[in-house]
Design a protein around this nucleic acid. Structure first.
Lengths: 135, 135
DNA sequence: CTGTATCCTTTCCGATACTG
DNA sequence: CAGTATCGGAAAGGATACAG
């Protein structure tokens, strides 16, 4: 529609431009399957079918789409062995291992604050209930 | 459809359960407007309209929805002044400031690796071009 | 085994109009 | 000023069938 003005409220970083680095990375890793695939691939190389088995329930479409995306961004390496039947192995690149580290930080933060979040949700729900009851 | 088996490939963390802490947090902060609002609110308290102006282009619907979501999760505090016309102020809670720190880490990682990602994309595109040309 | 193609449902999100 | 309600188009994502 239009691009935001020049604003950049904090830290000199522009989380505001939708074309910034943070956005690109966030859009990438915030995906449900991306997170799971990177996790599954963390210490090991896995083949397509095995990967699929571990992710319990992902459709071929989504797995392929996710893997292509990760490959395109340089997080995953795809190795095809010209055998029959075909054998394709997936593993994290160095960059992929690095995001895995970032995701570990996110996980740490999440686990140490999830209780506060849960408490906040409860408080919010209760406040909401009171608002309703006040009618 | 069905829940994944017991798998937990790495680090003792289960990024695999869709109901885990990481997922909840990731789903929250990975949202475009959530990231922008938290950023805009980082050091300061802002009113609804001012916030909207700074985010250039967000619709009222999305802003309200985003703010409610953040409030519900305890990241944002909403203060209503009973004046006329109404005046509503939004600010980060301590928890909100904390996620802001997490987002700074994500930003740091992103900025220091975005070049590698760009290079990977280029390489991928080129490889793709060769595959096409080989037909 | 490793995908691709298609359909179809669900969800997201912007535009718009209206309210206390 | 600070929202809420409703609508419609676009995009995401699952199920299924087919292919190299």
């Amino acid at each position: 529609m239009h691009t935001p003005p020049d604003l950049r409220p904090f830290g000199g970083a522009d989380v505001y431009l939708s074309s910034c680095a943070s956005r690109a990375v966030l859009d990438l890793i915030a995906n449900k399957w991306v997170a799971l695939v990177v996790g599954a691939l963390h210490p090991q190389t896995l083949r397509y079918a095995e990967l699929r088995r571990r992710l319990g329930g992902i459709t071929k479409k989504m797995l392929t789409q996710t893997l292509r995306d990760l490959e395109r961004h340089g997080l995953v390496r795809r190795t095809v062995h010209a055998t029959v039947p075909p054998q394709v192995e997936y593993s994290l690149t160095e960059l992929g291992t690095s995001v895995s580290g970032l995701m570990a930080e996110i996980r740490n933060w999440s686990e140490s604050h999830i209780d506060e979040i849960a408490a906040a949700k409860l408080a919010y729900a209760e406040a909401e209930a009171h608002r309703v009851e006040a009618l």
